[in-house]
Simulated assay, not measured.
Amino acid sequence: MRIAVIVGSTREGRAGDSVAAWFVRVAKQRDDIDVELLDLAEFDFPARYPQVVTAEMDRFTSAIGRADGFVVVTPEYNRGFPASLKQAIDFAYDEWHAKPVGFVSYGCRSRGFHAVAALRVVFADLHTHAVRDEVALDLMANEPGPAQEPAAATMLDQVVWWGETLRTARAARPYVT
């Protein structure tokens, strides 16, 4: 299974790159998935939605299309998720359809729960299947590590199960929106 791990924050000094690096290390220990890291900070997206698709938008959308499932690494900003993540999500549409998505969120006390709740609504409209379990980190209490690995394993098990199931279904019958 091809899993795209999307780092949703592009802010300078963000924790998202270190959280994603931890998660990718955990995910790469599995032999049932191939991980592709899509760090939005490494894409040169336009400030405004252009009239034509740019090469960077196409590069991102193509990676979404190749993936069998997704894990979004997101902070919580003001009870929501970053605008950079929403912009990137909106560049693709059909490429998201009938694929699973899991979440690794981080913040303070809320651990990113509000961001994930908002993302579940967005991804439902894109015809994805958001898996139930997630990894939620309070970075004020601790850094991601062995204590969070069981949650990561459970979430990945669900993404893989749904990814395999939906890939088989898409092959047998194209998804209709």
Rank of each mutant, 00 (worst) to 15 (best):
V52C: 07
E76F: 09
Q51W: 12
V72E: 08
V159N: 03
F91Y: 13
T177W: 15
L137T: 07
H114N: 15
E76Q: 10
I64Q: 05
P150M: 00
F23G: 09
M140C: 12
R30E: 11
A15E: 11
A63T: 02
V24I: 14
E42I: 06
A117C: 06
M140L: 14
A4C: 11
A153V: 09
Y175I: 14
I64E: 06
R109D: 15
F43I: 08
M1W: 11
R66F: 00
S62T: 15
L119D: 12
M1G: 14
I33P: 08
E164F: 08
T128L: 09
R25C: 05
D31W: 01
A169C: 02
C108E: 12
A67R: 13
A20R: 04
E164V: 12
D68P: 02
Q51L: 13
F91T: 04
G65L: 07
V122F: 10
A15P: 03
L126P: 08
K86Y: 04
R167F: 03
F23N: 07
A67W: 12
R173P: 00
A130R: 00
L156V: 10
G163V: 10
P150T: 06
A41N: 01
G102S: 07
P50G: 09
R11P: 07
T54K: 07
A88E: 06
V19S: 08
R59A: 14
E12T: 15
V131E: 07
L119Y: 01
D34L: 10
P144C: 13
T128W: 03
F81I: 00
P100G: 15
T165C: 04
G80P: 03
E149I: 02
W161L: 13
T10K: 08
D94T: 13
A130P: 04
V73I: 08
E143D: 14
V73F: 03
V122S: 09
A63G: 02
E164H: 05
D34G: 09
A118T: 00
R79L: 15
G80N: 13
D31V: 00
R120G: 08
P82F: 07
